[in-house]
């Protein structure tokens, strides 16, 4: 890795950084909307299924997929954090990435915790109980 990355690699790297920082937040947003919307609408329509799938499984998917997405984001943030270890006082791009990586690691943990708590609720509560 002594050569400088080309424009393509740079674009990918830059996007990866933001995935690591904000991936969890986005996943959580999707999770809340999908899980809440599914549950609310299906129950309002008086049915415990979505098409052929039982409602709890559909809602479960709205938990599992975002959770996996968040785990990926967490791993990327951790990777950035390790790769930028040699950030010196003066290399401000590295220092900045490293700071964002720390923010990413912790925020992904927070969002993962929220999503997992929602997952526990799916396992424990019957979907339409008022």
């Amino acid at each position: 890795m002594t050569t400088r990355p080309g424009p393509h690699a740079r674009l990918t790297g830059g996007l990866l950084l933001w995935y690591g920082v904000l991936g969890g937040a986005v996943a959580w947003g999707v999770h809340v909307f999908a899980a809440w919307g599914l549950d609310e609408l299906a129950c309002a329509a008086g049915s415990e299924r979505v098409a052929a799938v039982p409602l709890w499984q559909a809602v479960g998917l709205a938990v599992v997929i975002p959770a996996l997405f968040t785990v990926g984001s967490l791993l990327v943030a951790a990777l950035v954090w390790r790769r930028t270890r040699r950030a010196g006082e003066d290399d401000r791009a590295f220092g900045r990435s490293r700071m964002l990586a720390v923010v990413g690691v912790w925020s992904n943990l927070l969002f993962l915790a929220i999503i997992v708590l929602g997952g526990v609720a799916v396992l424990v509560l019957p979907p339409c109980q008022g």
């Binding site: 959580w28 999770h31 809340v32 899980a35 809440w36 549950d39 609310e40 129950c43 809602v59 927070l110 915790a113 929220i114 999503i115 708590l117 929602g118 609720a121 799916v122 509560l125 019957p126 979907p127 339409c128 109980q129 008022g130």
Partner: peptide, 21 residues
């Protein structure tokens, strides 16, 4: 407002975790 408890719990998970930051 009588929401299903499950859908309510997605929001209360958020209100619990927001105390951490």
């Amino acid at each position: 407002t009588g929401l299903p408890q499950l859908s309510y719990s997605f929001f209360s998970a958020a209100s619990t975790i927001i105390t951490i930051p």
